[in-house]
């Protein structure tokens, strides 16, 4: 059989077949299943590093909440938990659409795959818009800012600049992960349109999906930790 370069889809000599049907695994793997397993293991190891990256913020939270509970309680009372809840729902929905996208790719549903990628992208945008318009902007205007930029007069504990440092740091790093994820969905959409994904080859959909789920899981923890303290 003629060899087809691993990442030049659609140029193969086999006529009338979409690229995902003619996909050939990279030479140094024994078979496509091994390659898929290896890619997935790589993604999981990467996710471990992501969790440990956020672990620093969780330690920041744990230690500072232990040392200055009153700053955290009052700081948290200045957040509107309803927006947090709304955003949680948005992210959970997007997690579902991503899982569904993987299912579509596995079962060869090209239309469903593209629809789910677009839906996820829209939900991600909604998350960011809510974050920026209803959370970041008003807080910025009132001076609820980290550390030295803090200028909100109605504090009840002088350690509140720390709380806002945590709030902006944690949600900011999380939001930057959402932005990266949305870039990945644009890339997935372009490839899905070219027919790169199907039952025989959907590694990228699976990988990006896993990444998106971990971003969701981080938010599952951040939401009660930031918004629901009493």
């Amino acid at each position: 059989m003629a060899s087809i370069p691993a990442d030049k889809h659609g140029t193969g000599s086999v006529e009338n077949l979409p690229p995902h049907e003619t996909y050939r695994h990279a030479e140094h793997f024994r078979n496509a299943a091994d390659e898929f397993d290896a890619a997935k293991m790589g993604v999981w190891l990467f996710l471990a590093t992501e969790v440990l990256l956020f672990s620093g913020l969780f330690v920041f939270y744990g230690v500072m909440r232990m040392l200055h509970p009153e700053a955290f309680i009052h700081g948290s009372s200045l957040l509107d938990w309803r927006w947090g809840l709304f955003n949680t729902i948005v992210l959970l929905l997007s997690s579902f659409t991503v899982a569904d996208a993987v299912r579509c790719a596995q079962s060869g549903d090209q239309k469903g795959l593209k629809r789910n990628i677009v839906l996820t992208f829209i939900l991600g945008t909604a998350f960011l818009l809510i974050k920026f318009i209803f959370e970041y902007a008003p807080k910025y205007a009132e001076g609820k800012l980290p550390g030295a930029f803090f200028s909100y007069p109605n504090w009840e504990s002088p350690y509140e600049p720390l709380w806002w440092g945590l709030y902006w740091g944690a949600t900011g790093i999380h939001a930057s992960h959402v932005v990266v994820g949305m870039g990945l969905f644009i890339w997935l959409y372009i490839r899905a349109k070219k027919g790169h994904f199907g039952p025989k080859h959907y590694t990228a959909v699976e990988g990006v999906g896993l990444y998106w789920h971990i971003v969701d899981i981080v938010w599952i923890f951040l939401f009660p930790m930031l918004y629901l303290i009493h």
Partner: peptide, 12 residues
Amino acid sequence: TSIAMQARIWAM
């Protein structure tokens, strides 16, 4: 002056 106190001065 602490940052927190300065926030009140600025607010005033």
